[in-house]
Design a protein around this nucleic acid. Structure first.
Lengths: 338, 338
DNA sequence: TTGAAAGCGCTACCAA
DNA sequence: TTGGTAGCGCTTTCAA
């Protein structure tokens, strides 16, 4: 361990530049030489020194991942994104440096100026995000996973939430539903975050287009929200007389909806059809499986990392928002209204 | 931006070694010189190049944080630990490199051999953890946040779960309770993880010492567990006739217990006293506040980072398990049995 | 209190 | 297809 390129060269009976090229593949090497080098490297447990590599190669093979800590962050969703990013990064031979909390912004400038990273990935994007201005001011390529209000000149990747909503409405409308409920986020969340708005807006537009009456439930956050949700659900089913419900909420709210429907002796999809929009957990393995148009961290993060890698390579990548096409996953929770 | 030490030296009218020393403080510099250097550095936005620094200084100012991804990981708890580690690391001027999933183990060897990090922090430690053997085989100092079965020669930090359990039992025994229930993890979790066992064992030992009858509920994982929990709770209250319950479970199980007690028209602490052990969320702000002996990520991570920093500095740190003393937080959920 | 200069271990250019 | 070697930008030893 901690062998140096010099020792590998000696062991293989070649020069150090040959070792470097043989291992990086940046120029053609005769098979026999490459073999000897690879064997020697493996035998010595050779791993190029990271610092030397950064200095000489002008690339660090590290991406920063900035994730501000917000009290309302949904931990499981967040973790899925971090994990997906990290796995995607490794596939491109990058490591992930974590920039959390206060460092989410300040750290961007720091790691950019010190040349610690080849690119920055921005998670948990807020409508008005400090990191937008920062991204414009630094030299390190930056990719947003999420879309801020002002995305001018930025490279962004996200699910096409509006299309996802339209897909949900179309599915329900095609099945014959005319009155649809929507269990969404809190009013606060609509102020604060970005994508809930896009879901709701997409739903409204599509409902109008399909001539569907949409009734919205926005439960408060925290404990109180559970009561709001129960009340809202009754209102949907009794007053608004909906025959289908679209959901954009966390797993516990999904469970609560299922529990309330069961308590009211309503079957899915017999009495009520259900579609979940933008969920990051598997609604297909709930006690009652629910159709979904998932928010797939894997897809977004894979694309974001690929773009960052291309930018780090010096390739030109067109600025702009890349919206990923939504996919419908059927679990049999939608049928015609009775 | 991206100014080099050479330019700072020129701007300040000194040599580059003086700039290096003035900024690092590693040798005494006349105040006037230091001022000029600092001003020049600030004006140019100078940030030492990370790669050059690693190469010349033989230290990277990076710690790796290994976190295997397990399907049963409790995301909010996990996030708290990652965040706490990251904040603590910055206080010691270290960045965090993330090693997730498959890389949690393989990455340790990689970053160690390449000299990418000065130390490794191990999260989410399993009783038989691959990373134990790895830690012994590599040269980079490693600190475990959690305690594996065989901790021989390792540096570990964790809450003293057994003492936490004893504290809970003592509190309840002192209040006069003789029959105590315990809502814990699934049997699977007791096989798989480490600290649940220590909580349960501590509880059993302390209960015996204080002459308390302990009745344990181990709900299954997932959906089914919620039914188990409800059944177990009824059993505790009716058959075992307990007057107090200790909890070691996630927030949703806490909520479920409170809901069931409310449904049974049992008041806290009037009819039933409650203590939560090893929780990482604030049980004091539940609908009914619950006394707790928390698992404080901040405390563990701060100590772990400090130890790692000392090891990275070449200081000798005695191997062994550091158990942090538990703290009792009163929210008024314990009173004498009626 | 300050400066000069020798590396740190690679990558990549220039030669052969 | 291969080798020699000039840096990359800093830290730190040795001298002054």
């Amino acid at each position: 361990m901690m062998a140096k390129i010099h020792e590998v060269a000696e062991a293989a009976g070649v020069s150090i530049s040959t070792v470097s090229y043989a291992l990086s593949g940046k120029r053609s090497i005769s098979p026999s030489t490459r073999d000897r080098v690879e064997q020697a490297a493996a035998r010595l447990g050779y791993q190029p020194n990271a610092g030397a590599r950064m200095l000489a190669g002008r690339r660090t093979n590290i991406f920063a991942l900035t994730e501000p800590f917000r009290p309302d962050t949904h931990a499981p969703t967040h973790m899925s994104f971090v994990l997906a990013t990290s796995i995607a990064a490794r596939r491109f031979d990058y490591d992930i440096l974590l920039l959390t909390d206060a460092e989410a912004s300040a750290g961007m400038r720091r790691v950019s100026a010190s040349g610690l990273v080849d690119g920055i990935l921005v998670l948990d994007v807020a409508p008005r995000d400090d990191r937008v201005a920062l991204a414009r001011s630094i030299e390190v390529p930056t990719v947003f996973i999420g879309v801020p209000e002002d995305a001018e000149g930025l490279v962004c990747v996200d699910l096409d939430f509006e299309a996802a909503s339209a897909l949900a409405i179309d599915k329900l409308a095609d099945a014959g539903h005319g009155r649809v409920g929507f269990v969404g986020h809190s009013e606060d969340a609509y102020e604060r975050s970005n994508f809930p708005r896009r879901v709701r807006h997409g739903l409204e537009v599509a409902a109008q287009r399909r001539g569907i009456a949409l009734s919205v439930v926005s439960p408060r956050e925290g404990e109180a929200g559970r009561g709001d949700l129960r009340d809202g659900l009754r209102r949907l089913l009794q007053d608004s007389d909906v025959t289908a419900i679209a959901l954009h909420c966390d797993d516990s709210a999904h469970r609560l909806v299922l529990a309330e429907l069961a308590a009211a002796r309503l079957s899915v999809p017999g009495d009520v059809s259900l579609v979940s929009i933008g969920s990051t957990f598997d609604t297909g393995s709930l006690s009652t499986p629910i159709d979904r148009i998932p928010l797939d961290p894997h897809a977004s993060c894979e694309l974001a990392v690929e773009l960052a890698a291309r930018l780090a390579d010096g390739d030109t990548v067109e600025a702009g928002v890349r919206l990923l096409a939504p996919q419908y996953r059927d679990s049999g929770s939608v049928s015609p209204p009775r």
